[in-house]
């Protein structure tokens, strides 16, 4: 389980420090954050900005799809419970539009079935709300690293 792997003995503060220092000097990660809880999206965007993650905010599924149509993102974080559209449907559309982009799902407690369904449709990972920011940042970084790795391995055979 990713969640258990990430539990740190030093506590969240230390972890947060590490996540902020790690990201120094690198080009920022472009993140698409889709959640209909406006206050949550805004504060999360601010905090992620401090960790070298550039967040584009979308407050509904439709907005998220529109944003993805206009520009590319390294990674997407998608709340499965949205007012206008079913999260799984949005995930499917995202995967269709940009199959390479890893999608991390946010779900409420007790909706693990939805998360598992999401994994089947190609989501990268999932987090249960409320979560630690460090967990999210770790997952985002991991997703980006994973994407790079797969792109590299994809390129290797073409070079050789």
């Amino acid at each position: 389980m990713p969640a258990s792997r990430r539990s740190h003995p030093d506590g969240p503060e230390k972890e947060m420090d590490r996540s902020r220092q790690e990201s120094q000097g690198k080009p920022p990660i472009r993140l698409l954050l889709v959640d209909d809880e406006k206050g949550f999206v805004e504060v999360l965007a601010k905090r992620l900005a401090k960790r070298n993650i550039l967040t584009t905010q979308a407050f509904s599924g439709t907005e998220g799809i529109q944003l993805l149509r206009r520009s590319d993102f390294d990674v997407a974080v998608l709340d499965l419970k949205l007012g206008d559209m079913d999260g799984i449907e949005i995930l499917k559309i995202f995967k269709k539009m940009d199959p390479e982009m890893p999608v991390i799902m946010l779900t409420g407690h007790g909706s693990e079935t939805a998360s598992i369904e999401g994994m089947r449709y190609g989501a990268f990972d999932y987090l249960t709300k409320p979560h630690e920011l460090a967990e999210l940042v770790d997952k985002i970084n991991e997703a980006v690293r994973h994407r790079k790795r797969t792109e590299d391995t994809d390129e290797t055979p073409s070079r050789g």
Binding site: M16, E37, F40, V43, L44, R47, G108, P130, L133
Partner: peptide, 16 residues
Amino acid sequence: NNPVAIMVEEAGWLQD
């Protein structure tokens, strides 16, 4: 969960 998540993040933001 939603308000709790916001509160946690805002507190974290203050810490940041």
